[in-house]
Design a protein around this nucleic acid. Structure first.
Lengths: 331, 331
DNA sequence: CTGTTAGCGCGTTCAA
DNA sequence: TTGAACGCGCTAACAG
């Protein structure tokens, strides 16, 4: 195979200098005579030469790229986080390699694959629940890591208080006069779902109410899950219907809303409904919800990761992002 | 800096073989005695060795990664395309590097940066309007490229018929009895917007109607643009209001819907509204729209790109994906 | 200021 | 079946 890409030797030869000097101008080193620099730049342009990132990576032992690991591309929550990530990354000259790891896969193992590939300088893992697994290997690898949407004592982490969020939702419903409240939760394998259940129970207890098991649903965080759960609720005799429903995600709330409207009912008149996340859809569907600042989560995650990569982070970073209730029309 | 990563030499030494043999088992070469292979695998596991992708890339002159270039992370259109891309890529062991190129940037130049970086084996460029620019350099680079949402005679391309789509929308409105139709277009710098305008004009002419300039708006494809355009329309005397509006994107349609409802009006009773794209939001907001199969676009794009990379594509690939009208409640 | 040389970690002939 | 040696393209001492 004839070599077709011009390399640093070609440039050096044509410019009549050594490759080190060419390398110096590539890397904007100070110690190059202005005259020489200009000449080399001229030659590089003539030959349309650009250094091979791959070779640079190998030599420098760094890649100018980070990995972003997501559990899903479907969920608007993650899309919003991704926006924050991308916008922040755009300012730097750093590539974004996107990985999706499904819930049923061995997360740590997959992440270690990424670590060992040397393709990235750091990893942002979103909602990966690493902390409960055998993360030692990852820790020891000394790869810069930031966990987003997950609290951790061992890694940098930026997270929300799920207990508080769920509690806020129920508080709001109770303060609006509701007593019979149902909770449509996500999959309890998710730590976030467990926490939110705790928050609901805490609030219920605080208000000296009780919540029967039949009012607690748990499937997954998606729209269809919310739809089904709401249907089940509405299949009960009307006298047993909850007067308000709290969903663990806006996606579920949207599904629930569908189920409500299909019955000819309305939120909040017949059944009040509150979501969780504040995805864009919630705004247009006017769903009252708990706002998790996802964009900011992505933004901050990258800022911290970049600092860690540059060695500017002196100690483990840990931060809780504040939640807030967005009052709209469904509750 | 002490070397901390175990490399192929470490493995070879510990296993008492040459690095070539280790390399052979890494790459599943046939010509290795079973006994030797097992021993090497054992050692690799013990040392938790994994080959450096970067070094492999440099040696093999390929990267097992592709670039996906998008104009935006915000737009649901692109998110949907991205889903199709990711799902298709997931089956292969190929990394996805995401690039965003803004409209005001020199696209070809940016793309050539990616080409020369050697970080990817192929490029999927979505809605990049490469064909009108000076693409020769890209063509000559022989980098596998697929253009998505853009028709091209020089690159593999998968696209929609924008003229037909806009025409379908207007046809539908006219057939529903509307005569005074407004068109909220995207930025005319986009080829797609130009085409859609043509489609509208074609349909109007076909039905022997006329469309006054004041009924043709052009800003950008986003929600706020649709909102503003609709506001302008509604600022005219009520007698001059269009009875139906066709928007060039669902985002615009959503904004337009907002403007309509804020005035206490309803679609379709007061003003009929049809969108374009069929993003998820449109479904929940019950917006009648023209469906561009975005997911399929992403899927097919990657399939073609992978074939091209593998050298299985004998000739330039070109395909138009069919549009369809999704009737819902706003028109 | 500049050139030589030795890596970076792996793939791949070419002999053996 | 195997191993030695060279090449991939570039960076980083080191010497000059």
């Amino acid at each position: 195979m004839a070599k077709d890409k011009t390399n640093i030797y070609d440039v050096a030869k044509k410019a009549g200098v050594g490759i080190a000097t060419v390398s110096r101008v590539i890397n904007n080193s100070e110690n190059v005579k202005e005259e020489t620099r200009e000449k080399i730049i001229k030659v590089m342009n003539e030959m349309d030469y650009r250094p091979s990132k791959v070779a640079q990576n190998l030599a420098k032992q760094q890649s100018n790229a980070i990995a972003v690991i997501l559990p899903s591309f479907v969920d608007h929550f993650f899309v919003e986080v991704l926006k924050g990530i991308q916008d922040t990354l755009e300012k730097e000259e750093i590539d974004l390699i996107l990985y999706k790891i499904n819930v049923d896969e061995n997360r740590i193992s997959k992440i270690m694959d990424i670590v060992h590939s040397r393709k990235v300088d750091g990893i942002a893992a979103v909602t990966m629940n690493i902390s409960n697994s055998n993360y030692r290997e990852l820790l020891q690898s000394e790869m810069p890591v930031v966990l987003a949407d997950e609290k951790s004592k061992n890694f940098n982490s930026i997270y929300f208080d799920n207990i508080k969020g769920a509690e806020m939702a129920v508080d709001y419903l109770v303060n609006s006069g509701h007593q019979k409240i149902a909770f449509i939760n996500g999959n309890l394998e998710h730590y976030n779902a467990q926490e939110r259940l705790k928050g609901v129970e805490k609030a219920i207890k605080k208000h000296q109410l009780i919540i029967e098991d039949k009012y607690i649903k748990a499937s997954d965080f998606y729209t269809e899950d919310g739809y089904k759960s709401m249907q089940e609720l509405l299949e009960m005799p009307q006298s047993e219907w909850p007067s308000a429903v709290s969903a663990a995600s806006d996606n579920q709330a949207i599904g629930a809303l569908q189920a409500i409207e299909e019955r000819g009912l309305k939120a909040p008149d017949d059944i009040a409904l509150i979501g969780y996340d504040n995805i864009e859809l919630a705004k247009y569907l006017k769903i009252t919800t708990i706002w998790q600042p996802m964009y900011k989560l992505g933004q901050l995650t990258i800022e911290v990761l970049l600092k860690e990569i540059k060695g500017e982070l002196k100690e483990r970073f840990e931060k809780e992002l504040a939640l807030s209730l967005i009052k709209r029309e469904t509750a």
